[in-house]
Design a protein around this nucleic acid. Structure first.
Length: 779
DNA sequence: ATAGGGTTAG
């Protein structure tokens, strides 16, 4: 609401000093309970308006501003059900002689209605005259705003006379709450059919996702001789946007130009989004540039102009500099940060949004919950959950699905499941999130069971379960699930291949991997970063470093994970020097900075080249140049590096000087160095340290017993083994496997695991005897 | 009566 002759902000300090001269006003705005529940109408905005009315030279404007202030207050009281404050204001208005002003009277009516003061409602209705249709219509709107559709319908039936506004209010009201059939019942019986009622129905269809029906209704409207206006077109464009039909969008765009509505601000706003959704960034920019006037919606829509070109910084600049922001602008920016993987910034922006008095709605809350999920921030997530319960939206699909994600990413699958169960209208995202949540927390059985129950699976469901098998190291089953997926008719995408290739990498199953590579090329998705990275990794892990390099070199886009895979791959395959050369190349040319993972590969390469000093240089540069705090694994790498090169006392000093508790593997690396370089004293010390750390970790015991075994200390070996048995720790058996006719056959240390082991041993014996015969013949 | 914003898999 703009007031003519509104003073500039520089007048404000003056009035702050004289605020007490303003006649006592009933508690202007109730103090917000917390940042979240604050109302958008703040005390300062009211003061500004009152101040404006006082110093305005034009008395007519001042009076208007005064009325508007009262109306804002009434609205505020009405929304919060503050009947007492409302009564005080009513008395004030009576004294000022404006309570009979029709505009004010109607607002008073709505206030009493919302505060459920039926007696006052009846009194005002009588004062206005029972046949005041506007008053009745306002009451209907107020009921609809509160979601009380039956109340609205009752009033509609009771009212002595109805006009086109009454009918349209009901049509739009039912649409707003998803009751399309009820809405159409009134639409068909409406005696006042005009553009507005038709448009209400069309936009209602669009709001409820019935885009095609909206288009059909539009056609019917044209056939019945009613001409569309700018509002009709805005809704129509939105329908095209949701349908994603380029041809349809173009023809509607053509119709708009032909009928001369292309300069309307709302039409342009919807067109910007249409063009952006169709991938026509230039067209969208053209519409935006040619607009004569722009509003919050235009600016908000223009943020995506930069998001489409991948320029998040520029989008943020637009957001910061746009002339006005509302809750949708904030939500949009928060969502974009979250989608770009900048959850931290999203969360910062959310705090600022609440601080600035904006009320986050469902969309915004689900974005922020998603951001908190990736930050694994349980407490803030819980507080948002609490807020959602307080305002009664915890059963919403979007809120519920993001709550599942948030709780599960924080390791709380039970709470996640509770969120899943409480969603009133579950969709595929809810199901997929829950399946993902289970497999993320190692509950693969629960994940499988839930996956089976999904009513209608989509590509994400399949990818989730495939990824679940990979995460939980059931790689041998991944290919079975993948085949099942193919049989179900689902076409795999880059995400699927990324997981399945990871399984092949850990199985070192080169044949399967090559086969998948072929499928990838057939589907034309070999350009994808994730696919390229997974292929590079798979070939490297399977020992085919030539193919690995060739895939890597051909990747049109590389991220930090791609570089890490190649650097690690080279080091693993014994090309440590090449690995370090590649790392230097990455620092020179890549657009991405080295990460923890890359450094781990680099340190590993140094350890295997014996380049201790260079390793130290890299280690030291991690924090100094790149701001990456070395983790336990990096320290272990360094200990290994020193121990391998025989610099045992340095290794021991290094491990003692660590800022946090070392990994068990670090001690094990040192111990292994001790056994290679025969340092009995240090071995004894180190073994004791390892003992202390080895409380519940069977891997540590195994390391220790292996090291004892390697130096022939069999007494100690049996001591360790005995201790393990006492503690109930089971040795994880070694495993080996072969691939025969697309099926992986696994063999474990314990005999007889394979179903055909008897036959296999029979054949083995036969082969052995033949070999013996052959050997005897030769000698 | 309208336009701009939301959740899941790698």
């Amino acid at each position: 609401m703009k007031i003519a002759g509104h003073p500039t902000l520089s007048y404000l300090p003056f009035f702050h000093r004289h605020r007490q001269t303003w006649p006592r006003c009933p508690s202007i705005s109730p103090q917000p309970l917390s940042g979240l529940s604050s109302n958008t109408l703040t005390t300062s905005s009211l003061t500004k308006r009152v101040v404006g009315s006082l110093i305005s030279i034009n008395p007519k404007t001042a009076f208007q501003a005064y009325l508007e202030t009262c109306v804002s207050l009434l609205k505020n009281f009405s929304n919060q059900g503050l009947a007492r404050e409302g009564r005080i204001l009513h008395a004030h208005l009576l004294k000022m002689g404006v309570s009979s002003n029709r505009y004010i009277a109607i607002k008073l009516l709505i206030m009493y209605l919302n505060c459920k003061k039926t007696l006052d409602v009846d009194r005002i209705l009588k004062e206005l005259g029972e046949f005041d249709i506007v008053a009745w219509n306002c009451m209907i709107s107020a009921h609809i705003e509160n979601g009380n559709l039956e109340g609205a319908r009752r009033l509609f039936d009771e009212m002595p006379k109805r006009n086109e506004v009454s009918w349209t209010a009901l049509i739009a009201g039912f649409m707003k709450f998803g009751r399309v059939d009820d809405s159409m019942w009134y639409f068909e019986r409406n005696p006042f059919q005009n553009v507005v009622s038709w448009t209400a129905a069309i936009s209602g269809f669009v709001q409820n996702g019935l885009n095609f029906d909206a288009l059909k209704l539009f056609q019917e409207m044209l056939e019945s001789g009613i001409l569309p206006n700018e509002v009709t077109f805005t809704s129509l464009v939105r329908a095209c946007t949701s349908l994603g039909d380029t041809g349809l969008g173009r023809s509607v765009f053509g119709l708009i130009v032909k009928t001369g509505f292309e300069h309307n601000i709302s039409v342009c706003n919807s067109l910007i989004t249409l063009h952006l959704r169709m991938g026509e960034v230039d067209l969208a920019r053209m519409v935006f540039d040619q607009m004569e006037e722009r509003d919050v919606v235009s600016w908000t829509a223009s943020i995506d102009l930069y998001i489409k070109t991948g320029d998040l910084m520029e989008a943020r600049r637009i957001f910061d500099e746009m002339p006005e922001r509302n809750e949708v602008s904030w939500s949009m920016m928060i969502a974009r940060y979250n989608q770009s993987g900048e959850a931290e910034e999203a969360s910062k922006l959310f705090k600022r949004m609440v601080h600035n008095g904006f009320k986050p709605n469902i969309s915004c809350l689900s974005s922020i919950l998603s951001a908190l999920a990736s930050l694994e921030a349980l407490l803030p997530g819980k507080s948002i959950h609490g807020h959602a319960i307080k305002v009664g939206i915890e059963k919403d699909v979007f809120i519920g699905s993001t709550l599942i994600d948030m709780y599960c990413k924080c390791g709380q699958t039970l709470d996640g499941r509770q969120a899943f169960d409480s969603i009133s209208d579950r969709n595929l995202v809810s199901w997929n999130s829950m399946v993902a949540g289970y497999s993320l927390n190692g509950q693969l059985e629960e994940a499988k069971e839930l996956f089976e129950q999904i009513p209608k699976r989509n590509i994400v469901s399949w990818n989730t379960i495939v990824a679940g098998y990979v995460q939980n190291e059931h790689c041998e089953h991944v290919l079975e699930v993948f085949n099942e997926m193919l049989l179900s008719g689902e076409i795999p995408n880059q995400s699927t291949f990324s997981s399945v290739l990871r399984a092949c990498a850990s199985l070192a199953s080169i044949e399967k991997g090559r086969n998948l590579h072929g499928k990838i090329i057939k589907l034309g998705i070999q350009q994808d970063v994730f696919v390229g990275t997974a292929l590079t990794d798979m070939y490297a892990k399977s020992g085919d470093i030539v193919s690995s390099k060739s895939v890597f070199n051909r990747m049109p886009e590389k991220n930090e994970i791609s570089w890490a895979a190649m650097i690690q791959g080279l080091a693993d395959n014994g090309f440590a020097e090449d690995s370090l050369i590649l790392f230097e190349e990455m620092k020179r040319s890549a657009r991405v900075a080295p990460t923890e993972l890359v450094f781990l590969a680099v340190l590993f390469a140094c350890a295997h080249c014996g380049l201790v000093d260079k390793g130290f240089q890299y280690f030291e540069s991690m924090e100094r140049i790149y701001g990456i705090k070395p983790r336990g694994r990096h320290y272990t790498c360094m200990v290994d590096m020193l121990a391998r090169s025989g610099r045992l006392s340095e290794a021991e000093k290094f491990i003692e000087a660590m800022p946090f508790q070392p990994e068990a593997n670090a001690w094990a690396a040192l111990l292994s160095g001790c056994s290679i370089y025969k340092n009995e004293d240090m071995a004894e010390r180190t073994a004791r340290k390892l003992w202390e750390l080895m409380e519940e970790n069977s891997a540590g015991y195994i390391l220790l017993s292996n090291i004892y075994a390697s130096v022939g200390r069999w007494n100690d070996v049996s001591k360790v083994r005995k201790l393990m048995r006492e503690k109930g720790l089971k040795k994880i058996g070694g495993c080996s496997w072969v691939e025969v006719r697309n099926q992986v056959h696994s063999f474990y240390c314990e005999d007889g695991c394979h179903t055909q082991s008897a036959e296999i041993y029979g054949i083995l014996e036969l082969l052995m005897s033949e070999m013996m015969v052959f050997q005897n013949l030769q000698s």
